[in-house]
């Protein structure tokens, strides 16, 4: 996180809290239950997770600033459409950039880049924060929340790629399954099941359970 101390007024304790809180105790995915829609399907590989996280950080950071700048101009009756247009424009930028520089990954992410538009984190932060706060604070809030979201994506992606195909970022780390080197020499097998859709849900469920067993305040009374 940007934590330079010489610009005190910009990074007061409260402002740093805006970035830090969403990373752990107020994580948008595991605590606020936002933004799961477009996230889980692309976490089978760490590469895709990281790209997706970066895209959302960009869209939410910039989008929050734009909405915050326009917050006194947008009539509340059409604010949803106004917000959607801002997000859609940003997502088009991301989509074209991805297609230009990482065409293979862009193909793998397919419709899920477009689905950033309806990612509930983005609409949620616009509604809850950017419409009522100054641009700088909104920017921090946007980056913080998107990073919290990205963190979960990367954790899920890490486990799914490691256990599912024995690789990280596409590089084999557990040895060669065909040559039987490394861990495979003692009879370890990849679990292809980790790459399928259901395991993304179950992995995320386990992460949520783990976080809540650490922090009792988060436990739901059900």
């Amino acid at each position: 996180m940007a934590n330079t101390s010489e610009k005190e007024p910009l990074f007061s304790k409260k402002n740093i809290g805006l970035v830090k809180d969403p990373l752990t105790d107020n994580n948008p995915v595991t605590v606020q239950v936002l933004g799961i829609c477009s996230a889980l399907a692309i976490t089978a590989e760490l590469n895709a997770s990281v790209i997706m996280a970066l895209s959302v950080i960009f869209v939410l950071g910039v989008g929050n600033v734009v909405i915050s700048l326009m917050r006194n101009v947008i009539p509340s009756s059409i604010r949803i459409i106004a917000q959607l247009v801002v997000v859609a424009a940003l997502v088009i930028i991301v989509d074209l950039t991805l297609k230009a520089y990482v065409p293979d990954l862009a193909k793998k992410l397919s419709v899920f880049v477009g689905l950033i538009i309806t990612n509930c984190i983005i609409m949620g932060r616009f509604e809850a924060f950017a419409l009522a706060n100054t641009p700088w604070k909104s920017f921090l809030d946007g980056v913080g929340n998107a990073t919290g979201y990205g963190l979960i994506l990367v954790i899920v992606g890490f486990f799914r790629e490691l256990l599912g195909s024995g690789k990280l970022f596409g590089i084999p780390v557990l040895g060669d399954p065909v040559e039987k080197t490394g861990l495979y020499a003692i009879g370890y097998e990849n679990s292809g099941f980790m790459l399928l859709a259901p395991m993304a849900l179950i992995t995320l469920g386990l992460i949520i359970g783990f976080q809540r067993s650490r922090n009792k305040n988060l436990i739901e009374t059900n």
């Binding site: 259901p198 949520i208 059900n222």
Partner: peptide, 20 residues
Amino acid sequence: VPPAFRGLGMTFILTGLMAI
């Protein structure tokens, strides 16, 4: 349900099982 999994955690795992 174990307390840590109550609510959201359990729902995710259930959805995963239904998906299977």
